[in-house]
Design a binder for these strands. Structure first.
Length: 489
RNA sequence: CGGGGUGUGGCGCAGUUGGUAGCGUGCUUGACUGGGGGUCAAGAGGUCGCAAGUUCAAGUCUUGUCACUCCGACCA
């Protein structure tokens, strides 16, 4: 009973923390604000990486790697960019340690860097400084590059996966000859993120653009996907930016066009991070632990043998080997938990906590009857099935679970999305949590005031939606369309 | 940066008016058990965050210090 989780109702954030730690995903480290991602948590990240990486390649991108350290001077080249990140940068000032007279290790003041180095909070500056050298002619365009990397943002308050000082992510950086092409790229990539979130993570997302307040530092337009968590708070799950010519001008990246004219290139950048793991957890999991969608689960099927002695285990194992063979041939990842150090009940609870979509239990009774007990994690239902054709049934079941998890999350979001037209109802709905669709007069000031009064921000301005005119929820001024407000992580 | 809180076996905690440390869990060994987190027995494991001070005596009182954590302002 030691691994009992705090219930979501009792304390949602405690539940989240308990779950991350007890499901063996990650833990706090000796470094304040930085986490250790444990093997099971990292396996989820690897699944995400592998799918996303495939999608990036599919859309014409290549991977590369740029330095962790960025010369400080690079940051001063794009004004709004530096303003956005200046307050949370780690700075390297020295390159050597030494022993003092007491034998203590201290920084060697003689080894001060001529120019301080910034630990990248994002890589636009170093990448655009590099692109200047790569790009001369329209023949060099487009440049479609992605990198998988770690970045550091010195956050004051951190939470496992959702906000840590150092996190893992990918950042795509592209350069284009025309504005239209760059915008198309930025839109395409937010679309890739939406597809990934919905089809693989089974997390329904709203797609659209950010208000100027929420826009990326240095971007002309920020596209995003936004998900709703089970506690009614929004989570930004991915962003894609149209950077205009801001970085090209700051780093003097020009190309010669077909018409033999010097032109600045057009840019995009886009990224998702290990925060996606937080989104995954908070979208689907329950009071018994993680619930992983089959397409992301590191282990899709776990098999637990029920046995009293090694003879029984051997008999069961020879049957299990055949099942594993069939499942593997269908590309299903399966684990046979034949540890004799733990009892079946313990294993059931443990794999449930870790969110494995399907569990098979097989014991002497099943051997006699040629059956197996199949339990699904999402609904906690169990049934006993004939062994004949079991792989097909499981393959089908995994598909069903993937769909069910998505539908469940989708109906949660629909049940917690409200269109409101007066301030009183607005504040009430925001207080309760959920997406609140309301009219906004389009000004930054209004958004700031609303944020000050309710803590809600504009999460997304939907794009593919019929525009409906109205009056701003706060000021009563003219509004061209509804936008989505929520309290956010 | 402002305001709370906490530092005691691996983890979570208790420790009364000061008398030299205990509980749960986990760990080790064995037996019985095994279709939902087992039972019993026997063990191992702590300079009580650190440093001064008061005292015959400090986990406990005083001062300082360090670390962590929660709530706010800032953020993917």
């Amino acid at each position: 009973m030691a691994k009992q989780l705090t219930s979501r109702k009792e304390n949602y954030s405690q539940w989240y923390n308990d779950l991350v730690v007890k499901a063996d995903l990650a833990e706090n480290s000796a470094v304040r604000g930085s986490m250790v991602i444990k093997p099971y948590g990292y396996a989820i990240w690897e699944r995400m990486q592998s799918v996303l990486d495939g999608m990036f390649k599919e859309t014409g991108h290549q991977n590369a790697y740029f330095p962790l350290f960025i010369p400080k001077s690079f940051f001063s080249k794009e004004a709004s960019h530096v303003e956005g990140f200046a307050k949370e940068c780690a700075v390297v000032t020295h390159y050597r340690l030494k022993n003092d007279e007491n034998g203590k290790i201290i920084v060697d003041e003689d080894a001060k860097l001529e120019e301080e180095l910034i630990v990248r909070p994002t890589s636009e500056t170093i990448i655009w400084d590099t692109y200047r050298k790569w790009i001369q002619s329209y023949r060099d365009l487009p440049v479609l590059v992605n990198q998988w990397a770690n970045v550091v943002r010195w956050e004051m308050r951190t939470r496992l996966f959702l906000r840590t000082a150092e996190f893992l992510w990918q950042e795509g950086h592209t350069a284009h000859a025309t504005k239209a092409e760059a915008i198309e790229e930025a839109e395409k990539m937010v679309g890739v993120y939406a597809t990934f979130a919905e089809e693989y993570m089974a997390v329904p997302v709203l797609q659209g653009i950010k208000s100027p307040n929420e826009r990326f530092a240095g971007a002309v337009e920020t596209y995003c996907i936004e998900a709703l968590m089970q506690d009614g708070k929004a989570l930004q799950a991915g962003t894609s930016h149209f950077l205009g010519q801001n970085f090209a001008k700051a780093f003097d990246v020009q190309y010669v066009s077909k018409e033999n004219k010097q032109e600045y290139v057009w840019a995009t950048s886009w990224g998702v991070s290990t925060r996606l793991i937080g989104a995954l957890i908070m979208s689907h999991s329950d009071d018994n632990g993680l619930v992983l969608p089959p397409k992301i689960a590191p282990i899709q099927v776990v098999i637990v043998p029920i046995f009293k002695n090694s003879e029984q285990l051997d008999a069961i194992s020879s049957e299990v080997v055949k099942i594993i063979e069939q499942l593997k041939s269908k590309g299903i990842t399966v684990k046979f938990d034949d540890r004799d150090t733990h009892k079946p009940g313990f294993k059931f609870a443990e794999w449930e906590l870790k969110g494995v979509p399907v569990r098979l239990a097989i014991g002497p009774r099943d051997l006699e009857n040629k059956t197996v007990e199949v339990a699904r994690r999402d609904t906690l239902e169990k049934e006993t099935l004939q062994l004949i054709g079991i792989a097909d049934k499981i393959e089908h079941l995994l598909e069903q679970i993937q769909i069910n998890i998505f539908q469940k999350a989708l109906s949660y979001r629909e049940d917690h999305t409200y269109s409101v037209d007066n301030w009183e109802e607005f504040t009430k709905r925001i207080e309760e949590g959920g997406f609140v669709r309301a009219h906004w007069d389009g000004t930054s000031e209004t958004e700031q005031i609303i944020k000050g009064k309710t803590k809600a921000t504009i999460r997304v301005i939907p794009v593919d939606e019929i525009k409906e005119e109205g009056k701003c929820i706060l000021t009563g001024n003219h509004s061209k369309q509804r936008v989505v407000f929520a309290k956010a992580y």
